[in-house]
Design a protein around this nucleic acid. Structure first.
Length: 126
DNA sequence: CGCTTTTGACCTGCGC
DNA sequence: GCGCAGGTCAAAAGCG
């Protein structure tokens, strides 16, 4: 079954692979987006009235990579950053880390994001 | 000179 | 049928 086809189909569907991460800037002043080791190109930014937050749209630079990333943060609290990964990378990370446990790092981030999600909440606590 | 980022406009989909 | 929201693409400007 066509792993390529499956991967591609899944890629198109994409959303099932959605991932969320939250990064709190230590300085609480600048908006910092977690480096995945991939090259992202910002292709748009819009204010989502529905959630009252800003949303930035990133696309993978790789032609073979149709992965997309969207980052949203509160207009009043840029520290609350929410990154959603859409699609899969068909190409290895350019900037691999010295640690071979990159996946573990992701898990750690996921764990942290989970905790933060509870604290900050996917929505604005208002 | 090349690449990246930012802003605006346009298009599509859904809801009323 | 019209309006609103969200999403994407294109062009231009700035920086490295």
């Amino acid at each position: 079954m066509n792993e390529a086809s499956t991967a591609r189909g899944t890629l198109v569907e994409a959303e099932e692979r959605c991932r969320e991460e939250q990064l709190i800037d230590m300085e609480g002043h600048n908006l910092v987006i977690p480096e995945d080791g991939y090259a992202w190109k910002k292709y748009g930014q819009k204010f989502i009235k529905n959630i009252g937050k800003n949303r930035s749209y990133f696309k993978c630079q790789k032609t073979n990579c149709r992965a997309k990333k969207r980052a949203e943060w509160s207009s009043s609290d840029p520290s609350n950053l929410r990154v959603v990964y859409e699609g899969m990378h068909t190409h290895p990370s350019s900037t691999h880390q010295p640690n071979s446990s990159q996946q573990q790092a992701s898990i750690s981030s996921a764990n942290q994001y989970n905790l933060l999600t509870q604290v900050f909440g996917p929505d604005n606590p208002s």
